[in-house]
Nucleic acid binder design. Structure first.
Lengths: 298, 298
DNA sequence: TCATATGCCTGACTAAAGTCAGGTATATGA
DNA sequence: TCATATACCTGACTTTAGTCAGGCATATGA
């Protein structure tokens, strides 16, 4: 716990976050209560389901409902059934009216204006440095906001990750990826005590996964490590690996292994840098070219 | 108006500012209403005058008074006369009690905790990159928040800047700085239409100044360009120079000049890079070694 | 088909935040 | 010394934000 780093991060929180945040709110509000303005913004020109708004804004269901009624009576939005094909008839969605769209465009304009008012006083050179530093802060903060937690493999978010994982493999392997040709992994193998499925989420959205099987009298085995494109290059894969290893080590396993395809070069590089060394094949996985093992400190 | 830069700044405002800001508030509040917690924090271990608190937090006078009563009745602060020597007996200051100091320390601790919770998930290397980028954003945002405006030379903030300017000169000149030996500048020469005094402020605190005298039938003359240490290296001096030149140019002057001491090397470099070229002495300023002039585009 | 869960809703409430119009004591400039 | 300004205060008020309990219609699993 380095106190100089902490002091710098605190200064940032205070000066940047509080001040720019307050400005942002001021620009956003324009007469209307902030909560309404934020909601209007979040609905956006494309509309949004009520549940999604609740999740994104973190609002109480009753409160959100009331806010929607207010916007509705101001003629800015209409709330109706979210007629997705074969959808749940309870689900409703908010859509902007023409007046709402005008209002939204105004918010958009003001948001641009605020951003420009920050950049404008600077020289061209400093503007570019500021924007570059902002992008760096943003990326690294996103990295730090990713949470890795155990999750049941049957969870819809877990399923979504595994599907994305399979799509990625199909795209990257020379001969595509047919799950039927690959060694199967059953859900119950990824539920404690047999193993675990870890889910990485960013603001409750799934952005990565990984699993470990705790084989009896054999090294533990890592499966399904996947990270969404949107958060690649932020060290999430490495953190996932660390968590999986820790899980196995804490339960008494002293070695862990995995197999991988030769086309996944970054993954292979990550395994090597994480201390994995290549071993002889320990199974007959159709799509595997490399087998790795690492000893775990107790 | 570069729309890519704007888009990046907007993304930053949204993701970083809103999220970290919300976290910050949450950590700060700890049971107590946010406004009270913020006030307690702002009073700090050293205490603070009521007027200063009002300015820093941007609160209504009545509202602040009530907040102070609440903290007082909770036994966290005492509000009494701000007994500065020979001071205004109306001015009052808030001071933390022992209980208030304890509470403040707890806020301090939580603030550290929040900062660490942001850095902790990252690798050492990424932590350092994040902190460096945060510092860069902070500095450049500070630069962009500095406002340069005309101000009467008799304004206390202007006086404070001129005093700081004289102190700086005394420190940097080989033989100190005695205003009596220097060509005098009278207030009325720095009031329109004879000239102007510009004040640079950061959150209403004076951080720099500069003045121009509009001599009849002669080039305009720049005086008293000064920038506080706390905001040096952010291009404030250059902006000040630009504003002074603009002021003279807009009123019809086509040349502007200034004299400076040989020890002020960064200032001299700035003048040169801003297009000033050295000329023969146009006056007999005791402390001057160099005289510069620049032609102004109409 | 029935118990239970879920998505969204309304009504009733509270707390926090903020505004405004004076009021008192002190300071200041003519 | 007197009118006016200033620093802080109190009282009365409104708006915004947020919570909680329950209700209705639809979905879901046994």
């Amino acid at each position: 716990m380095n106190s100089e780093l902490i002091a710098a991060a605190r200064r940032f929180n205070r000066t940047v976050t509080q001040r720019v945040g307050a400005l942002d709110d001021e620009y956003m509000a324009r007469g209307r209560p902030l909560a309404q303005a934020r909601l209007l913004w979040e609905i956006g020109p494309g509309g949004a389901e009520v549940a999604a708004l609740r999740a994104r804004l973190g609002l109480d269901s009753g409160y959100l409902s009331r806010l929607l009624r207010t916007l509705e009576s101001d003629g800015l939005v209409t709330v109706g059934p979210a007629d997705q094909v074969g959808g749940d008839a309870r689900v409703r969605a908010a859509v902007l009216t023409d007046a709402g769209r005008t209002e939204w465009a105004e918010l958009d304009r003001r948001s641009d204006e605020l951003a420009w008012s920050i950049l404008e006083p600077l020289t061209e050179q400093r503007r570019e440095r500021l924007v570059a530093a902002m992008a760096e802060v943003e990326r690294l903060l996103i990295a730090s906001m990713v949470v890795i937690e155990p999750c049941l493999p049957g969870d819809p978010r877990a399923r979504a990750c595994v599907r994305a994982y399979a799509r990625d493999l199909a795209r990257r392997f020379d001969d595509g990826f047919d799950p039927a040709l690959s060694n199967p992994v059953h859900d119950e193998e990824l539920v404690p005590p047999a193993g675990v499925f870890l889910l990485a989420t960013l603001n409750a959205e799934p952005v990565g996964c990984g699993a470990v099987k705790l084989h009896r009298d054999e090294p533990a085995e890592i499966k399904r490590v996947w990270v969404a494109d949107s958060v690649r290059g932020l060290g999430i894969g490495r953190r996932m690996l660390d968590e999986l290893e820790r899980y196995a080590a804490e339960r008494g396993w002293d070695a862990i292994r995995l197999e991988t395809n030769g086309n996944l070069t970054e993954a292979i590089a990550m395994y090597r840098s994480a201390g994995y060394r290549e071993i002889e094949p320990y199974n007959t996985e159709h799509y595997a070219h490399h087998w790795f093992e690492k000893h775990l400190a107790p």
